[in-house]
């Protein structure tokens, strides 16, 4: 069919690459959420403050986040090599890909968190305040639960973005399906490998999006 021959595929290598992609995705998602969620809350809180100093903190944070988001991911990977080596010891493979993935995705997720927190009805925050809630109680018991559907939707978008980032990291020696597609499909003209790799990533994205949508629906009370 179209001159393609799938019988010669090395399924062993494909399954290793698929697993690598899943590993990178899982690890980078976890760290992205761990870093991005507090950063998003911090952005939200500092942006609302009436204190001029706190708002300066917001401006600085905001600029940093914007810079990280505007640098193309492929350049970020290369620029972060010293940092990556300092943290995980290597700059290639599954392990070496995780730090740049997190640094690339966390600011993006933080913005999504900030946006969904802004969607929370101010009246509800005011009500909590009138009941004597502390700032921490408002964040943990009002803001985050009320924003949960938005946060889950943001998390889904972030994970999907990470799928494409892991593929890009294949360009610079990261492992996984992207790496496979580039090495075999691009450099060695084995279209079949490229097609299968891309197909797997499409399926992965579809599954993630469906799972995310389902979670959002489950937690939506409106």
């Amino acid at each position: 069919m179209w001159g393609l021959d799938f019988s010669q595929l090395d399924w062993n290598e494909i399954s290793v690459a698929s697993l690598d992609t899943l590993k990178m995705l899982a690890a980078s998602s976890v760290f992205t959420f761990i870093l991005g969620l507090p950063l998003g809350v911090l952005l939200y809180q500092t942006s609302r403050s009436s204190n001029a100093w706190v708002r300066t903190v917001y401006s600085v944070l905001s600029v940093i986040v914007n810079i990280l988001r505007s640098v193309p991911f492929i350049i970020l990977i290369v620029a972060l090599i010293p940092f990556t080596i300092a943290i995980v010891g290597v700059s290639y493979g599954v392990l070496g890909t995780i730090p740049p993935l997190v640094i690339g995705a966390a600011p993006f997720f933080a913005r999504l968190v900030e946006t969904s927190l802004r969607e929370v009805d101010r009246g509800v925050l005011e009500a909590a305040q009138s009941m004597g809630a502390s700032t921490w109680q408002i964040i943990l018991k009002v803001l985050l639960p009320e924003a949960r559907p938005g946060l889950l939707a943001g998390a889904t978008i972030t994970v999907v973005t990470l799928v494409s980032y892991t593929a890009m990291s294949g360009m610079v020696g990261g492992g996984g399906l992207g790496d496979l597609a580039i090495r075999y499909g691009y450099y060695r003209y084995q279209k079949e490998v490229m097609i299968i790799s891309v197909l797997f990533m499409i399926i992965l994205v579809q599954l993630l999006q469906m799972a995310g949508d389902r979670l959002v629906k489950h937690f939506t009370r409106k």
Partner: peptide, 21 residues
């Protein structure tokens, strides 16, 4: 102030209930 506010209940025009609870 937080402690004093617990002694002052308040209700609102738009109810301001937690929609997730």
């Amino acid at each position: 102030l937080q402690n004093q506010r617990r002694k002052i209940g308040m209700i609102f025009q738009h109810f301001n209930l937690l929609s997730s609870a």
